[in-house]
Computed example of a mutant assay.
Amino acid sequence: MIGPAPGARDSDDGTSPKSDLTVAVIDLSRARAAIVEEGLRQAGIERVVIIPDTADLLRRLAEANPDVVVIDLESPSRDVLEQLFQVSRLVERPVAMFVDQSDAAMMQAAVDAGISAYVVDGLKSERVKSIIDVAVLRFNAFARLQRELSEAKSELAARKVVERAKGLIMKAKGLSEEEAYNLLRRKAMNEKRKLVEIAQALITSAELLG
């Protein structure tokens, strides 16, 4: 899996992506890739890496370390599509895909693979940059939602651990809920550890002791 993209992020005001991007273009047709490259360079994007086939694709993408991936396909086979959809799931980058023909199943597969922009019969050099901008913004918006969801789940799990630890203290020491919480908090402050770490250690000890 490729690490976090160095440049595909929101601007300071969160409304538009950075312009100094590195874009990897995956295209089996050099002529079609040239159209994409022309559109990118006209838009001021100079760092364009052309990948003319799908051999050892993940390694080549890792070496290019792009901010955005553009996949340009004319009449791809199902095997090629599945390979590219798998790549899209793994690269953790905004991915814009251009295809000449599509159907409902292919579009659903693209959505499931995390394709940020899926364009049917719309490859024109003057449109490339705007579509990439949309792909980056959609990718960043989805990434924020995923991060917020993950943080919410972690917070909920931490609260459950603390609640359970408070219950153990209340039962063992005959304290109120507030007193049990304050005891946990003092312990965490004294040891300079997170409250949930102290709570989990207490639960683990109680489980070991039966």
Results as ranks from 00 to 15, higher is better:
residue 104 A to W: 12
residue 71 I to C: 11
residue 163 E to N: 14
residue 44 G to Y: 08
residue 54 T to K: 05
residue 178 E to W: 03
residue 196 V to D: 02
residue 142 F to M: 13
residue 179 E to Y: 04
residue 72 D to N: 11
residue 148 E to H: 09
residue 119 V to H: 05
residue 17 P to E: 04
residue 105 A to C: 07
residue 114 G to V: 03
residue 138 R to Y: 07
residue 49 V to S: 04
residue 185 R to S: 05
residue 101 Q to H: 13
residue 52 P to L: 00
residue 4 P to K: 11
residue 175 L to A: 12
residue 121 D to T: 06
residue 24 A to G: 04
residue 167 G to V: 02
residue 142 F to W: 15
residue 146 Q to P: 08
residue 82 E to G: 04
residue 131 I to R: 05
residue 169 I to E: 00
residue 20 D to V: 04
residue 136 V to G: 01
residue 4 P to D: 12
residue 124 K to Q: 15
residue 178 E to Q: 07
residue 200 Q to M: 04
residue 8 A to N: 01
residue 170 M to Q: 06
residue 15 T to Q: 14
residue 208 L to R: 09
residue 14 G to N: 04
residue 15 T to K: 14
residue 148 E to V: 08
residue 33 A to G: 07
residue 172 A to R: 10
residue 37 E to W: 03
residue 189 M to K: 15
residue 86 Q to N: 09
residue 30 R to N: 14
residue 93 R to E: 01
residue 192 K to E: 15
residue 110 A to Y: 05
residue 162 V to F: 03
residue 128 V to L: 06
residue 52 P to V: 12
residue 118 Y to V: 04
residue 31 A to E: 12
residue 27 D to K: 00
residue 137 L to I: 13
residue 51 I to M: 03
residue 41 R to C: 00
residue 177 E to I: 10
residue 88 S to M: 06
residue 112 D to I: 11
residue 5 A to Y: 07
residue 126 E to Y: 12
residue 82 E to T: 06
residue 58 L to Y: 04
residue 78 R to H: 11
residue 81 L to P: 02
residue 8 A to C: 14
residue 92 E to K: 14
residue 197 E to N: 05
residue 77 S to K: 11
residue 67 D to R: 04
residue 81 L to D: 03
residue 110 A to T: 02
residue 108 Q to S: 14
residue 98 F to K: 02
residue 11 S to P: 05
residue 59 R to E: 09
residue 89 R to H: 07
residue 130 S to W: 15
residue 183 L to D: 06
residue 114 G to A: 03
residue 44 G to I: 11
residue 114 G to H: 09
residue 82 E to F: 06
residue 74 E to P: 02
residue 83 Q to F: 03
residue 92 E to A: 07
residue 115 I to F: 03
residue 73 L to V: 02
residue 28 L to F: 12
residue 128 V to T: 00
residue 97 M to S: 08
residue 148 E to I: 05
residue 123 L to Y: 01
residue 125 S to T: 15
residue 172 A to M: 13
residue 71 I to W: 03
residue 124 K to E: 15
residue 147 R to N: 09
residue 100 D to T: 10
residue 151 E to T: 09
residue 137 L to Y: 07
residue 33 A to F: 00
residue 170 M to A: 07
residue 128 V to K: 00
residue 81 L to F: 05
residue 136 V to R: 00
residue 68 V to H: 01
residue 123 L to S: 00
residue 63 E to H: 06
residue 83 Q to G: 01
residue 97 M to W: 06
residue 43 A to C: 02
residue 177 E to L: 13
residue 169 I to H: 03
residue 194 K to T: 12
residue 180 A to S: 15
residue 28 L to D: 13
residue 151 E to G: 10
residue 6 P to W: 04
residue 208 L to E: 11
residue 182 N to Y: 13
residue 154 S to H: 11
residue 169 I to P: 01
residue 140 N to V: 10
residue 23 V to M: 06
residue 6 P to R: 09
residue 113 A to K: 05
residue 99 V to C: 03
residue 79 D to C: 07
residue 103 D to Q: 10
residue 68 V to S: 01
residue 30 R to F: 08
residue 203 I to W: 01
residue 72 D to G: 10
residue 177 E to M: 14
residue 128 V to W: 00
residue 88 S to N: 06
residue 106 M to W: 09
residue 117 A to P: 04
residue 51 I to A: 09
residue 8 A to E: 06
residue 160 K to T: 10
residue 89 R to Q: 13
residue 171 K to C: 05
residue 74 E to V: 12
residue 79 D to N: 11
residue 63 E to I: 15
residue 89 R to N: 07
residue 132 I to P: 01
residue 187 K to E: 15
residue 36 V to C: 03
